[in-house]
């Protein structure tokens, strides 16, 4: 069993009338079965409303499945005594950095998580030092978070999660609000955590270029997982992706257009280097 495993997971949102009776239900996640091995980098794609954020919130038990079971590191999220342990195993980073930073100084913000866990003070500082180091934010430890750039704020948010020493980190569109440099900074920090600390990463994004280094990609639509595979397998299917309101990286699209026009190059090109090598042999 992988670090994240789900069997037949479904989730319903309920809409209530004024008297508190259920008026309608909407199934946001439906029959999702996945198994993510520890230490892997997984990406989840899907259009707005496809159910990917709802699904992501099951990974740290912010939401509990209406049907089916979610196991995080072998623990069933429906078993209440496990809840806090699960949340320490799986940390979450959201889209808007301003909504998740609470400290007035960077290092205090990063220490908030472990402090809540009741870690002794000396250990908290040790963890804060480590987390800031891993996200490249040590130089900013005494800064006020609101004076930082978007990319730096997100790295503080990631450091805050890392200080809880999770086995797995879920990032829900962490780069949507950032400029190109900020996107690069955050993505590099995440990839480094995955490579060097062996943290399992689940990245939800609308930027197709961010997915090309993932080990495995899931595509969601109407609450279902409709495609899965390596980035190359997924991005070879340009037309299917477009059907799901998605896209491919520009270089992949260009290669696909060239191939359609009769140029003899391989399918599923993912990087500039691959395309250049294919065209200039």
């Amino acid at each position: 069993m992988g670090i994240i495993k789900t069997v037949k997971v479904a989730f319903d949102y309920f809409k209530y009338d004024e008297d508190g009776n259920v008026q309608e239900t909407q199934r946001a996640v439906d029959n999702v079965n996945i198994d993510i091995p520890e230490g892997s980098f997984v990406a989840v794609l899907g259009h707005n409303g496809s159910g990917k954020s709802t699904f992501a919130k099951h990974i740290n038990a912010l939401l509990l499945p209406t049907e089916g079971t979610v196991w995080i590191d072998g623990m069933d999220t429906l078993k209440e005594p496990e809840l806090w342990k699960i949340r320490q195993k799986a940390g979450m980073v959201f889209q808007n950095p301003d909504n998740q930073i609470i400290g007035t100084v960077v290092e205090e913000d990063v220490g908030f998580g472990p402090e809540n866990m009741g870690i002794p003070t000396d250990d908290i500082w040790k963890r804060v030092d480590e987390s800031l180091e891993k996200t490249g934010m040590t130089a900013y430890r005494h800064h006020s978070p609101n004076k930082l750039s978007g990319g730096q704020k997100q790295r503080v948010a990631i450091a805050g999660v890392m200080a809880m020493r999770p086995k797995c980190i879920v990032l829900d569109e962490p780069t949507a609000m950032l400029d190109p440099n900020g996107r690069k900074e955050v993505l590099e920090a995440v990839r480094q955590l995955n490579r060097e600390e062996k943290v399992t990463v689940v990245l939800i994004t609308h930027y197709m270029e961010e997915v090309i280094h993932a080990d495995h990609v899931y595509v969601m639509d109407e609450g279902h997982v409709v495609m899965e595979g390596t980035p190359r397998e997924i991005f070879s299917q340009v037309e299917t992706l477009k059907k799901y309101r998605l896209d491919v990286p520009q270089v992949t699209l260009l290669a696909w257009e060239l191939k359609k026009s009769g140029v003899d190059i391989p399918e599923g090109i993912l990087t500039t280097e691959e395309l250049v090598n294919a065209l200039c042999q």
Binding site: Q250, L253, L254, E257, L258, S261, G262, V263, D264, I265, L279, Q281
Partner: peptide, 25 residues
């Protein structure tokens, strides 16, 4: 993408690239 696609095709034709052979003319 459309600009680049068109321009690369032109450059490949001008260079007489073997990649174009076999594909639809």
């Amino acid at each position: 993408v459309p600009e680049a696609c068109e321009d690369i095709l032109r450059a490949l034709r001008e260079a007489g690239s073997p990649l174009l052979k076999g594909g639809p003319a």
